[in-house]
């Protein structure tokens, strides 16, 4: 039984880490640069599908499925997300605030519909199964494997975290904040705001794509229903509750929000009497909403707010 809990928590931690990586990507865009990307799920999905298409074993009915090694899939997924982000960035980044949000939301929806309809590449509504898990043959026990995979995702999260921390503390990162606070002033100081915004957008989406790739190679299945707008909402919640602009807050709140999302289901199935179990789902939704609203009322800047000063030289 205790082993069961540890086993479940390992599984849970893998999902949290993956969502945390996606939240770090969004934090660079929104927290640091002020880009309202409401289409995160689109880039998450591109990473996921790229991983599946590159690494899954060939099947006669599918165009892709190249059966390449896992690491090629991961790199490929990041490259694909970056390319798509570059394309989207060129078209939309002149838009500001709400307009950018609507445009990116629309693009994510388009990407989901393409995944649903391009049967030859994505498997259409059936999705793709049997996506290989890295080094799966070395482990006979699912628990041991999940521990290994947790190590893998934690390593990926650590690399992304350290990298982003260094970047936002660099001169490049300070320009992003300058743009977020006052774009006109940044331009007046001779900074090419459009280029910086573009770079931050592409880099953030690349990180989100990595998260998508890690997710499918863990679950072993990818389908269009994994990439509905609710994921965008969840990742945004993780960032806002954690405190936008703070990478540690983003990671911590991936844990808290996902624990709330799934833990509330557990709680409901324990405290609600059997006769009312079928109403439990609705109570769960109310509970999630309530906790989020209360957090924002009492901690409007998020659980861990942004550090006011990040430069080494300014302390």
């Amino acid at each position: 039984m205790t082993l069961g809990i540890v086993s479940y928590l390992t599984f849970f931690a893998v999902v949290v880490t993956i969502l945390g990586i996606a939240t770090l990507g969004l934090n660079l865009q929104w927290g640091s640069t002020g880009l309202f990307n409401a289409g995160i799920v689109g880039f998450y999905g591109i990473g996921a599908y790229a991983q599946a298409i590159l690494t899954a074993a060939p099947r006669p009915e599918l165009l892709g499925n190249f059966g390449l090694p896992w690491i090629v899939g991961i790199v490929g997924a990041m490259v694909c997300s970056a390319l798509m982000a570059a394309l989207v960035g060129l078209v939309t980044l002149r838009l500001r605030g709400d307009y950018l949000a609507i445009a990116t939301f629309g693009i994510a929806t388009v990407l989901q519909v393409i995944a649903l309809n391009w049967d030859g590449l994505t498997g259409g509504s059936l999705g793709m199964t049997s996506i290989p898990r890295p080094l799966a043959s070395l482990f006979s026990d699912p628990f041991a494997y999940n521990v290994f995979y947790l190590g893998l995702t934690l390593a990926a999260a650590a690399i992304v975290y350290v990298g982003l921390e260094r970047i936002i503390r660099s001169p490049w990162g300070r320009v992003l904040k300058a743009i977020r606070e006052d774009e006109t002033a940044a331009i007046a100081l001779g900074k090419n705001a459009a280029r910086f915004r573009f770079e931050a957008f592409v880099l953030g989406c690349t990180v989100t794509g990595l998260a998508g790739a890690l997710y499918v190679s863990f679950i072993g299945f990818v389908g269009p229903f994994d990439f509905l707008p609710i994921i965008t909402f969840q990742i945004w919640t993780m960032l806002i509750v954690g405190g936008s602009g703070n990478n540690r807050g983003a990671l911590l709140c991936s844990l808290i929000v996902w624990a709330l999302w799934t833990g509330s289901g557990t709680l409901i199935s324990r405290i609600v009497p059997a006769a009312y179990q079928t109403q439990g789902g609705a109570i769960q939704s109310i509970l999630i909403g309530l906790v989020l609203v209360l957090t924002l009322m009492f901690k409007p800047r998020g659980l861990i707010g942004e550090e006011p000063v990040v430069s080494r030289h300014a302390r």
């Binding site: 599984f11 999902v15 799934t262 289901g265 199935s269």
Partner: peptide, 26 residues
């Protein structure tokens, strides 16, 4: 004993619930 979990129509939530039912609830 019947243990019912909501997947909210979301694959990730459903998988998590299933894992919980199998590992913790046995």
């Amino acid at each position: 004993q019947f243990i019912l979990r909501d997947d909210q129509g979301q694959p990730t939530v459903g998988v998590d619930a299933a894992k919980y039912l199998v590992e913790v609830e046995r």
